[in-house]
């Protein structure tokens, strides 16, 4: 079971990874977008960490609601509303639960990706963060379904996200700013997929000992 504290640590760890990788994310975005993804997410996750510090959340769901709200309010760009909506949907899925089981976490992750897909209208193969989220959620689910431990499932999710990220290199973008490039978008990793890997890697890290 994951407690509120673990969710809090997830966000702090994500913010740390985003900070450490901000330049890389921005460079990826420079290649096929407008060179601000790292800057946007750094601003967004710093705001999320600050919001959690200022008004500590009582439940895992409340953590995610605060994070979603902060991301929407502070990130801007395409990624802000998308990640923010993802966290809000995940939060709703968790409801008032004080502790979260691996099944509940799986449902929350599925809710997140559903929210993102609904808002952005992107399908798998469109070369967006959805290409990292979708296999990650599937890998998590099948690990849990196969009786795997939570730590195993989150690691599988992060690994699958990484696979999804790699798969975006070959793809031509059909959503977001990179789609303006048409065929010239091929040959580059999608920045949003890259940040999704960080998010899930952070989750694997904070749940590694559970």
């Amino acid at each position: 079971m994951l407690d509120t504290e673990t969710f809090h640590r997830w966000i702090v760890e994500t913010a740390r990874l985003v900070e450490a990788n901000a330049d890389r994310l921005t460079s990826l975005d420079a290649a096929i977008g407008d060179a601000d993804h790292g800057i946007n997410l750094r601003r967004g996750f710093q705001a999320a960490v600050t919001a959690l510090a200022e008004k500590p959340a009582a439940t895992p769901g409340a953590v995610l609601a605060t994070v979603g709200r902060a991301l929407i309010s502070k990130t801007g760009g395409a990624s802000g509303p998308l990640y923010g909506t993802g966290f809000r949907h995940a939060s709703k899925s968790l409801g008032e639960a004080a502790e979260v089981s691996e099944l509940q976490l799986g449902a929350a992750l599925a809710a997140a990706v559903a929210g993102i897909r609904q808002l952005g209208a992107a399908a798998e193969g469109d070369k967006t963060m959805v290409d990292a989220w979708t296999p990650a959620v599937a890998a998590y689910q099948s690990t849990v379904d196969g009786g795997g431990a939570l730590a195993e499932a989150t690691r599988a999710a992060a690994d699958a996200a990484e696979g999804g990220l790699r798969s975006t290199v070959e793809l031509q973008a059909r959503k977001g700013r990179a789609s303006y490039l048409g065929p010239r978008s091929v040959g580059h990793e999608d920045p949003g997929a890259a940040s999704t890997v960080l998010l899930l890697r952070a989750l694997a890290t904070v749940t590694a000992e559970t």
Partner: peptide, 11 residues
């Protein structure tokens, strides 16, 4: 006005 080259936020 959003941040430089970044859309404004809903708020």
């Amino acid at each position: 006005p959003g941040e430089v080259f970044t859309s404004p936020v809903p708020d």
